[in-house]
Design a protein around this nucleic acid. Structure first.
Lengths: 214, 214
DNA sequence: AGCGGCATCCCGTGTTCGCGCGAATAGCAG
DNA sequence: CTGCTATTCGCGCGAACACGGGATGCCGCT
């Protein structure tokens, strides 16, 4: 493997010592031409030079704009570039916001050089490298979305009609689509209202979506 | 490492051949005393024997109750047991539901024996082992939870009215609450429809909730 | 000053909806 | 067989709705 890899990795990290250490690690497997201590500098460089790195390793605590707020801007400037967070923080809020902002991976600075290189390969391979504890946290956050799935005892038919309502169909359309008379649709609607305890179709649609009944 | 590991792994998998293969793999590192072809059998065994495995490898497609629906019951019977999904499915819905139900990991059946063993260790170590593509999917699902708020250029007034619509208010109520005539509300609604490219209030409410405009 | 664009407001008309009533059929469990 | 539920269909009325217009005031641009 002496062929120089065409893959380019950037590093945004304000601690110069740590940055150089990581850069050396990366250089053994990828090109790592650019190192920045500030998010803004990297964004400007993307805009001016038109350079498009394959991966950016991004710190969270940075002078000026923090890494997480920088993610959307970096992604806007270079949509194809995968961003891996590399930080000491592992609190739920930072993880959540980073992932929501579009980070493709989340590593801790305790990661070994091998782990970092593996993560870069992984992310280029369509994966989402992250520290084990981070992954666990993410899953727990997910399961918190777990809806108690309150059951309103809607029938199959009622659910079908609710779905079409959510699509914005009017009664006549629903009737023809299900090969029913509008009167039947009407009756179903009334039963749905009663079961969901609402009085309008907007209320029914709102409740259906909020409680993920459909 | 000739000391028998005290760690116990169960396997719920209906394909007897595959089950035996995996069991052999696991046996080289853990105790794997129980293999089930049905979720219900495992749940019953947990209840009757009081056995508490450390990890359960769980298939999704099973005769009788499917694996995903089995997760809550297994967790109820043995809350400390970590469940790892081991399946051929990688569609968003199954992943999402499995994670929400409380699975601690998600592997594909294409995983190598080493990966399976590593996953078991990982999950016992507080991690959340999963296939790279699965992890990526999960992150994408996450970022969908607060996607970049596509801007439909709704005005303050329009947003107010949209909010009240989502609450299930009728035009008259909206009008009185905002001290307007119903006609004014009506016009705002039309503008909202145009901006959201819908033709009904249900459509508007659905779009507003789906895209988290409010 | 003139102009277009936009947010805000209002009215009338024809359509759709919510809901009151009633009723028939089919399937399923006790 | 006898309830029970799901599903289907019917009619009529008043309320709510969609949409065609029309109008005012504010802001920025030229």
């Amino acid at each position: 493997m002496n062929i120089p890899s065409p893959l380019e990795v950037w590093l945004i990290e304000d601690n110069a010592t740590f940055r150089r250490t990581i850069a050396r690690v990366i250089e053994s497997n990828f090109r790592c031409p650019e190192g920045f201590s500030r998010c803004e500098d990297a964004i400007e460089c993307l805009a001016k030079t038109g350079a498009r790195p394959d991966v950016i390793l991004l710190d969270v605590a940075l002078p000026g704009m923090n890494g997480i707020d920088g993610i959307p801007l970096l992604r806007q400037a270079a949509p194809e570039t995968r961003i891996i967070i590399l930080t000491v923080f592992e609190d739920d809020d930072k993880i959540f916001r980073a992932i929501c902002a579009g980070a493709a991976g989340y590593l801790l600075k305790t990661a070994s050089p091998e782990e970092i290189v593996r993560a870069i390969r992984d992310v280029l391979d369509g994966g989402a490298p992250m520290n084990g504890r981070i992954a666990r946290r993410l899953l727990e956050m997910f399961s918190r979305f777990n809806r108690p799935h309150k059951d309103y005892h809607l029938t199959i038919r009622e659910r079908e009609i609710l779905e079409l309502m959510v699509e914005g169909r009017i009664k006549k359309e629903i009737a023809s689509r299900l090969t029913l008379s509008v009167h039947t649709v009407d009756t179903h609607l009334r039963n749905i209202y009663a079961k969901l305890e609402v009085h309008t179709r907007t209320g029914a649609v709102a409740k259906a979506l909020k409680e993920k009944l459909i």
